[in-house]
């Protein structure tokens, strides 16, 4: 399973998102120092820089930092396995506008 699918599986199971888009933007960071950090983990073809847009009921009533902490916590294993940057847009239903 590639890193995009790992992230999708974790977030889908834990948050049951109403909307979820995951983009692997690793190619835009080719040559970036962070990509050379963990040669054993980060494949040259991608898997280090991701952008996630996620709408879920779980975020209702939570501030921005708490939402990010929730997602970062769910993906702690993925960070350990080579994810270097994760751009997050985390919305509760009704905030999409």
């Amino acid at each position: 399973m590639d890193m995009t699918e790992r992230i999708r599986a974790k977030l889908t199971t834990a948050l049951m998102p109403l909307h979820l888009v995951i983009e692997d933007e690793s190619h835009r960071h080719a040559g970036h120092a962070g990509r050379m950090q963990q040669p054993g983990h980060a494949p040259a073809g991608g898997g280090t820089h991701f952008k996630v847009v996620l709408v879920a009921d779980a975020f209702t009533g939570l501030g921005r930092v708490a939402r990010h902490r929730m997602v970062n916590g769910l993906l702690a294993g993925e960070f350990a396995d080579g994810v270097h940057a994760l751009q997050l847009r985390l919305l509760a239903p009704g905030e999409e506008g």
Binding site: R64, V65, H68, Q87, L88, R89
Partner: peptide
């Protein structure tokens, strides 16, 4: 106080 990272 911690405000956040780039996205926030």
């Amino acid at each position: 106080e911690f405000v956040g990272g780039c996205d926030i």
